[in-house]
Design a protein around this nucleic acid. Sequence first.
DNA 1: ACAGAAGTTTGATAACCTTCGACATTCGAC
DNA 2: GTCGAATGTCGAAGGTTATCAAACTTCTGT
Lengths: 108, 108
Amino acid sequence: MTSRVPPHPDRADITLQGVLEALVDPVRRSIVAQLHLATDPISCGHFDIPVARSTATHHFNVLREAGLIRQHYAGTSRMNTLRRDDIDELLPGLLDACARDHQAQTPA
Amino acid sequence: MTSRVPPHPDRADITLQGVLEALVDPVRRSIVAQLHLATDPISCGHFDIPVARSTATHHFNVLREAGLIRQHYAGTSRMNTLRRDDIDELLPGLLDACARDHQAQTPA
DNA sequence: ACAGAAGTTTGATAACCTTCGACATTCGAC
DNA sequence: GTCGAATGTCGAAGGTTATCAAACTTCTGT
């Protein structure tokens, strides 16, 4: 089966506290920024982040449990997409701010 | 002299990282929400927060150093105002989101 | 000058979070 | 079924932060 589906919170269960806790970490904010700047889903292993794989797993779990990303399996890869609508409803402007900040800190 | 003025960061030195670190704490977010919902400056002692005075001092320092509030003395009281313009420039929608969340969690 | 009000400073403590390496798991291809 | 690639799980180590009580400072009234 290609559908070990990890638990995602409903939109109504996404809290500002959870979102802020998730985004206060630079690594997680970078992940969100990369997703926001991309158009297609990205697998966990294809992000540009400076941490070990086990640490990356932790960060993706935090993002999913906070309601920021949606995850589904494609083979052994775990694909990630942003929950744009849900995030925008909670705090419009957040994704753009993260992306802008990310680009400002990422030398061309 | 009624002007011991604590150091405030310039607008250009306000970072998304610092702002998020400041607002991830529920007590500090509550302070910001109360300021956003008010029209006039509020002294440190007049906020509705569940912590000891020494802890409150710490939280106000964090908020000021992050660039979220401006502080000035009036007698023995330390008055606080929101740096609305600076915050809006960095992350429009943030203050409203904090205030909305605060009101949702504060039973009438 | 004194007393009280409003904050601040100073440790100390406890909780939390990120990070890693090592080992286990799962899926697709062959 | 075996192998390799992509993740997940599991402690342990390290650093950071919130919290408080107690003692100190500063300012306003009287």
